[in-house]
């Protein structure tokens, strides 16, 4: 097993065998459950169109996934440093690139688990309607780069600052800002500034795609521009993480 795989294995076990990791998953499932229960307890929401509900659930999965990814990313270097486990990794025969790759794969695995966990929720709110398959496919295609991009951003800040608190707060502010389309609704997004933000905001890109393909049944080709946007986001954030992880703060 190479060094990256060893790190990734450890990251996975940190999520599934460590109580802290399981608590994060529990928090994630709690967010999705709360939203699903809101749908059946709220009369107005329960009258929503089925596709609208699936769209909202896909957006919630992306937001909750990004939130957990930000927490995990902030912990990736700074948490290890604070718990005294970073130095043994840095003094082991492993390059900083391999260390980052292991962490990145670990984060991707965690998102894989969260994605799988979201499927029963999507089924529960969307079965019997149309475009459930579309929702699952596009959540994988657009949600993955958005979620992982936020995780890698937090990882970069974590490696640079060496402080979980500092990297977590900074990443959360950026995440909240990016996820604001989910909060502010379509009205404000139609303003000039809202449109400009939408054009460069990967979170908006994913949400607009969910809207287009789940609610309006738009074809795949019409989403290529947004796919490029979210893939660019992922690539840039991974590049930033690589730069920061070359010399992580370890003291």
């Amino acid at each position: 097993m190479n060094a990256s795989s060893l790190i990734a294995t450890k990251e996975r076990s940190a999520l599934l065998q460590n109580q802290r990791g399981l608590a994060w998953l529990l928090a994630y499932a709690g967010i999705l459950s709360a939203f699903a229960l809101l749908l059946i307890s709220n009369r107005e929401l329960s009258l929503l169109d089925n596709a609208q509900v699936v769209y909202m659930m896909a957006g919630t999965v992306t937001a909750a996934g990004a939130l957990i990814a930000v927490i995990m990313g902030s912990d990736a270097y700074a948490g290890e440093r604070e718990r005294g486990t970073l130095v043994p990794l840095l003094t082991a025969p492993i390059s900083t690139g391999d260390l980052l790759m292991g962490k990145a794969i670990g984060l991707a695995s965690a998102w894989g688990i969260m994605y799988l966990l979201s499927l029963p929720y999507l089924w529960a709110v969307g079965a019997g309607g149309q475009n459930l398959g579309q929702a699952i496919f596009y959540l994988g295609l657009f949600g993955t780069p958005v979620v992982l991009g936020f995780g890698y951003l937090a990882m970069a800040l974590s490696a640079r600052s060496g402080s979980v608190m500092s990297s977590l707060l900074t990443s959360l502010i950026i995440l909240l800002f990016s996820a604001s389309p989910l909060l502010i609704g379509p009205g404000l997004r139609n303003s000039a500034i809202g449109k400009a933000l939408d054009a460069v905001n990967p979170f908006s890109g994913a949400l607009n795609t969910y809207d287009a393909v789940i609610i309006d049944s738009d074809p795949f080709l019409s989403q290529l521009g947004r796919l490029v946007l979210v893939l660019l986001w992922l690539g840039i954030m991974f590049g930033v993480a690589r730069l920061s992880a070359r010399r992580p703060a370890f003291r």
């Binding site: 060893l6 076990s13 109580q19 005294g84 130095v87 043994p88 492993i94």
Partner: peptide, 24 residues
């Protein structure tokens, strides 16, 4: 190397940890 602050992945057992770390 034995750093001053000895940190470990505390959910692992000592045996599991050594086997994992020796993988490097």
């Amino acid at each position: 190397v034995m750093p001053e602050f000895a940190g470990f992945y505390e959910w692992m057992s000592a045996r599991e940890y050594l086997i994992w770390y020796a993988g490097f």
